[in-house]
Design a binder for these strands. Structure first.
Lengths: 352, 352
DNA sequence: AGCTGCATAGAAAACGTTAACTATGCTGCC
DNA sequence: GGCAGCATAGTTAACGTTTTCTATGCAGCT
């Protein structure tokens, strides 16, 4: 009859007593590094099983130094993009023997900062910020301070899908080419013959994601010598409903676009619905493209032309770089490529 | 110039030294329970800010008893259903001042058990298993043992969207009415006039989700006195591609169904695609229903008739019940209702 | 004056583990 | 035979908190 000490949870001492050895020996059997005689090992393992002992991760972390924990902070769990990247983070963390903490800030930048602080209390080895963020003066400064705070205690701030904060800020950055992808997909539309291309964005241009994508959209126009009608650039937020609303508004005021760039696939899906409801055909009347290539995109009707970003690899690389930053001391900034995925929502402009 | 001790991370001692008080006092200022003079408090808080001190959650947990941590174990982060429930878990955990651990098992029941063990090491206050699970003899027994293990150390196993394990197993169960929902939606199809209704399932019937939903499907037929053609019941797994494959196979062998029940919306989305590719119209030629009401479903073309389950509430209730199980000692088993959401993928059968 | 009681503060023990020493045989070698 | 060196095991001191328990001053009362 196993007789754990007080709490109900058996400790090394209990196991040691049951196996007639010292606590150290139990630790060594479990650690597996130090030589222990076969018979002792057997007795200890027996006691571990009998008592249903599991190690106390907190106590181990306290003495051992590391918690073997990676935190990831994300806008929402339900957004497919965040989930995809989060999946990469979780997979890589697990592969590296780490456990994953997760929390969501629902788009509130201040809450995001609070969460980082919380993760610092939790002694996470790395704090991965997934997705774009605000890029105002004050927010950037606070973020830089936080990066230093984390650095001081041996933890690492990782920006995943967000540009670097500044030159002297200790942070790992894994981004993908937001501007390049937007350039490519816009260029593709222009090459099809489109000249009036709407951009349905989200948030203020200070939001890094919209900013960079809008930049690519603009650059493509400039490169091709196509003038942009500022009327065609509108903005809401990152959900489907916003895409629907902005598009309806564009149509209502007779913007006369032949193509629409949605800032995300989610937004583009709203664009699609608005066009359909307005009796317009895609791609015959209006072409639509998105950005992200979330799982949903291939199933839309018509299947959405979009920009694929390497979601999972983004998350994996974030964790890999952060955990092995001694080995990758030089390349703590990684830029992953994106590429256009052409499906059925794009075609040359019709008669207009 | 702050001078932290060794590691780089300032400790209570460092703060105490900087503020000229004892460690105890620092702890009290931060804890906020014990009376501390205003001037002392000010000095301590000052030192905390100067040193950029944060508490060590591990050390606090070690002595304080609780880690204030909730773990959730889920099949995948990307599956919209899991993400939705996970969202509920995270929200409620945060609301209760807990931090969230997450890990994924990708449908491997053994891996699931390993993860629970891992979470036990982490001293999670509750371990929430999200989504259906295996229900074989041996797996059930192991799960029951694990529930007892967790219980012994003051942690709580929570089954979220999965039926109870057994009468004497200490676990909190929050399920939704899988059978009832499947009954209702099947009954709806029958009431529309359908008589040959295919069921595109997943996994062996030992998998709790498929088992219960198939049960509802069967019961509705029985209740209405409609005979089931066993040929119409097929099975694959839980993804879109499986729905596509099974449907294509059904059509290929001339099963002649006028309606299809997909075991999940994801599967139903594959069914939709297969029918479209086969030149069949939905709902004119074949009606399709799903189950889960994931965000995607309303955006499918045609919008999917399905069974709505209260995803977020499911996750929230799981955490709430587990953390306050002293107050809810009696109702540690909760069954949430489901209801049919009628959209455009269903209609009376056409000429056949 | 002497006591009680409160406000404030510190010292020391505890939480469960590991790491750095220390101790004891035993083998093998000159 | 003496000693180096290894295999094996135990003792003790950390790790960073919180929680007793104890101590001091000072007000208020009889």
């Amino acid at each position: 009859m196993p007789r754990p000490s007080s709490n109900g949870r058996p400790t090394v001492k209990d196991v040691a007593a049951a196996a007639n050895v010292s606590a150290t020996t139990v630790s060594r059997v479990l650690g597996g590094d130090y030589p222990v005689s076969a018979s002792t090992r057997k007795r200890v393992l027996r006691a571990v099983r009998d008592l249903d002992y599991v190690i106390n991760a907190q106590a181990r972390a306290l003495v051992g130094g590391s918690t073997r924990t990676v935190a990831f902070v994300v806008r929402d769990l339900v957004g497919p993009l965040f989930a995809c990247i989060g999946q990469g983070v979780e997979l890589q963390a697990t592969a590296e023997g780490r456990v994953c903490l997760v929390s969501t800030h629902h788009g509130d930048p201040d809450r995001e900062l609070e969460l980082i602080e919380l993760m610092r209390e939790q002694q996470a080895e790395a704090v991965v910020l997934v997705g774009g963020g605000l890029r105002t003066e004050s927010h950037t400064r606070r973020m830089a301070e936080i990066a230093h705070s984390l650095d001081r205690v041996g933890s690492r701030l990782v920006l995943c899908g967000r540009p670097p904060i500044g030159p002297d800020v200790p942070a790992t950055v894994v981004e993908y080419d937001n501007e390049g992808g937007a350039f490519a997909v816009t260029d593709y539309l222009i090459s099809l013959g489109h000249r009036r291309i709407a951009f349905v964005g989200a948030g203020e241009p200070e939001h890094t994601t919209t900013g960079a994508r809008l930049g690519g959209y603009t650059a493509a126009h400039t490169a091709r010598g196509v003038e942009i009608d500022r009327e065609l650039i509108v903005s809401g937020n990152y959900d489907r409903e916003s895409g629907y609303r902005q598009t309806t508004a564009l149509l209502a005021r007779g913007a006369g676009m032949t193509a629409v760039v949605g800032v995300t696939d989610m937004v583009a899906s709203g664009v699609l619905a608005a066009l359909r409801d307005a009796g317009l055909r895609v791609p015959e009347d209006v072409s639509v493209v998105g950005y992200d290539d979330i799982p949903l995109s291939a199933d839309l009707n018509p299947a959405l032309t979009t920009v694929r970003i390497p979601h999972e690899e983004l998350g994996r690389a974030a964790v890999r770089l952060a955990l092995h930053r001694d080995e990758h001391a030089l390349d703590q900034h990684m830029m992953l490529g994106t590429h256009v995925v052409i499906r059925s929502s794009t075609a040359p402009p019709g008669r207009h």
